[in-house]
Amino acid sequence: MTTVISPPESPAGSPAPRASRGFTFPTRFLPVIATIALFIAMFGVGSFRYEGFSSPQTLLSVLVDNSHLIVLAVGMTFVILTGGIDLSVGSVVALSTMIAAETLRAGWAAPLVIVTVLLTGSVLGLLMGLVIHYFEIQPFIVTLAGMFLARGLCYVISLESIPIKNETFTSFASGTIEIGDYFITPSVIVALVVLVIAAVVLHMTRFGRTVYAVGGSEQSALLMGLAVARTKVGVYVISGFCSALAGLLFSIYTLSGYNLGAVGMELDAIAAVVIGGTLLTGGSGLVLGSAVGVLVLGLIQSFISFDGTLSSWWTKITIGVLLLVFVLIQRLFTRRTT
């Protein structure tokens, strides 16, 4: 047994012990508030520097361009909350676009295509989850295999990119939803619905609470009699499903299946989750934070396109720097509490 039962900390002097119920609220939301503050600050600086940046459409465009990434980050949040990691998501996105494009070209009906894609992603996630849990192999290496597998399958489907001409998909792609003078796309609605469902699942169901418990301490969760196996496998199924859904949104966004697409998207998703305040050791974080993290990444891109003189590579450098800052803050935060 490695778990040590420490005596309760002396209440005198120690500020707000973590276990006490009344005080958990602020600490839990603190990282997300920090991310939201960063977002608002970036938006403020952008509005100050560039003409037209302050328009609400800038924000909505960020949502439109990154709806697939939000879905991806939501799935990734589940995995990271249990202390795992999923490197396969980018490749699964590419695989989903390929399956969608190829089956549509073969004349399948759109609903059937959507079900097939979602099922493929979920099954891939299920397989990875089963291997991770039952053979006790590190998530890193299993999902690395999943990444290779999905990318390889892309090339099995086709060596070239395939355009999507299906009417359901194209109408979904060109469809807009007007909000006053501004607009969003149906993809944004899908992403927001996924976000809300994920938040409800995480905070209002037994499964969600078990996700946090497993991330906090798998050993303790097991001793408490929680369904650790089901939860650990479940988060990879969710991540696989979200990747497939993100793949569908991405295929609608680009209207093609491209086997070299979405390379490195898993890094964007992980970065968004970290910037959103989720601890990589698991057990702490909110899906809302991950969504705001995606918006921060999107806003960096808006900055660069608005500026015009900045080169595209500044996106990567900025994401790296933000990642570093948030990891350092996390480090300070966890050091203080432990």
């Binding site: 890094l267 992980i270 970065a271 970290v274 990589l280 080169s311 595209s312 590579w313 500044w314 996106t315 990567k316 450098i317 994401i319 790296g320 720097v321 990642l323 570093l324 990891v327």
Partner: peptide
């Protein structure tokens, strides 16, 4: 995570 920072930013630096 520590090396992820450089993995993300590194290619940007190389392009710079």
């Amino acid at each position: 995570i520590a090396t992820l920072v450089l993995m993300t930013a590194g290619r940007g630096l190389a392009m710079l």
